[in-house]
Amino acid sequence: MIKLKVNDKSVEYNGDPNQPLLWYLRDDLKLTGTKYGCGIGACGACTVHMNGSPVRSCSLPMAALGSSSIRTIEGLSSNVGKEVQQTWKELDVVQCGYCQSGQIMSATALLESNPKPSSTDIDNAMQGNICRCATYQRIRQAIGQTAKKLEG
């Protein structure tokens, strides 16, 4: 049995240990904000936080989770996370929106570990998240603006 926390709630898992976390979140817990995009950790749409760090849930088998604490877009509650979402709305970053949960989880993890990222830091941290609508310019702006807001 795998015991873990998802969005601060304790859950127990008895299913196939090879099932990726993504499908446990989406099909079992009905937390559908985390998206499937590629299944090989190449697009970032499935990004969640595992013990505070961004991970690609599509490529993370349940067996590898130990007693981790998982946070999804639905449970994003930190100041940084809330501020990131707010700036995302102010700049109307989204287009189709499908990748944006993953973008926001990656951006939040970046700002939580690096409150003043340079543009190279932003590019590096966000390079694993594809946005086919190419909202990259606004993502870059939103991360920069959020950093400024949090500083002030």
């Binding site: 904000g33 877009i73 639905e74 995302w88 709305k89 109307d92 970053v93 929106g97």
Partner: peptide, 13 residues
């Protein structure tokens, strides 16, 4: 402002 922003930003769309 876009009407679809809030739900696309919090994962509920």
């Amino acid at each position: 402002p876009r009407k679809d922003s809030p739900e696309k930003v919090n994962g509920s769309a």
